[in-house]
């Protein structure tokens, strides 16, 4: 096994320190007793207690979660359909426009997406609230889902689908029984991506949210504009903890699955 040179070791150490130190400092200061976020005054969990009492944050968190679940689920369905159309749809009228509309939102600045959706909602007289945020998030998230799913569909052995069709499946049955189980990991990661994008989004939500519905990022942003606060540190720590736990467990599960698959393949090879 070759070892890393001192140069490579240094750049990895410094690079990861740069990526992680800010968050580690944030987490440490969330346990600070003092209201002054920069002076350490002893360990305390009181900010977490205050956070759980803060109705406004809890309400916003609930709205955010609802929006994220609804929009990511819708986006997964629509995105998977779009990916299927792009990869398997063959030629149809307006295909170029379609693929343009799939890729454009990925590079569109959020301020423009937000502004344009708001103008639409006002134009058709739709009251701004949970529904408008869900519509907005679904639209940009479905494009991410369709990119993830179509990359899986491209590498997929088409003869499996054809076999199912030959054996008497209808088109939809072939999709449900053969295609879907094979692309499932991509569909799931697409959902997770859509979910996090929705949880995270500040700009588009600010444009499309009304007075009746405020999401957590909007709440955090307006609090943070006034400066650093220990309550926001506590909230951030909770969010970082949830994400870290989620990502690590997802990667462990996928690692175990691939190990099992390898073992099965070896067993099958021996049996032959």
């Amino acid at each position: 096994m070759k070892r890393l040179s001192w140069f490579n070791t240094t750049s990895l150490t410094l690079g990861f320190a740069f990526l992680y130190l800010p968050m580690i400092i944030l987490v440490i200061y969330s346990f600070n007793e003092s209201k002054l976020v920069t002076v350490w005054a002893g360990f305390s969990t009181k900010w977490y207690g205050e956070l759980l009492q803060n109705e406004a944050f809890l309400d916003a968190a609930w709205v955010t979660l609802k929006v994220a679940v609804l929009s990511s689920t819708l986006a997964t369905v629509l995105g998977t359909m779009a990916a299927y159309v792009l990869v398997r749809g063959g030629r149809f009228m307006g295909r170029t426009v379609f693929s343009g509309m799939i890729y454009a939102p990925l590079v569109m600045p959020e301020v423009i997406t937000g502004l344009s959706l708001l103008l639409l909602f006002i134009g058709i007289g739709l009251d701004r609230g949970v529904l408008t945020i869900v519509l907005a998030h679904t639209t940009f998230a479905m494009c991410y889902v369709s990119v993830v799913v179509s990359s899986r569909l491209l590498t997929f052995d088409r003869s499996l689908e054809e076999a199912a069709l030959d054996l008497g499946c209808t088109g939809f049955e072939a999709f449900r029984l053969v295609t879907l189980p094979i692309i499932a990991p991509a569909v799931i990661s697409g959902w997770l991506l859509a979910f996090t994008l929705s949880l995270d989004d500040l700009v588009i939500a600010s444009f499309t949210a009304g007075p009746s519905a405020t999401t957590l990022p909007i709440k955090i942003f307006s609090a943070v504009r006034l400066g650093v606060s220990p309550e926001i540190n506590a909230l951030s720590t909770l969010m970082i903890a949830i994400v870290t736990f989620g990502v690590i467990s997802a990667s462990l599960v996928s690692k175990r699955n691939s190990l099992r698959q390898q073992r099965d393949e070896q067993a099958a090879a021996r049996a032959e």
């Binding site: 992680y20 968050m23 944030l26 976020v37 920069t38 943070v224 951030s236 969010m239 994400v243």
Partner: peptide, 27 residues
Amino acid sequence: MLVILPFWTSFLIRVYAWMGILSQEGF
């Protein structure tokens, strides 16, 4: 995974983390 992990963490929080570090009496 260490490179991708921050990407899953809220963008707003990652920017916010620097406010406490870079301020006058910051870290």
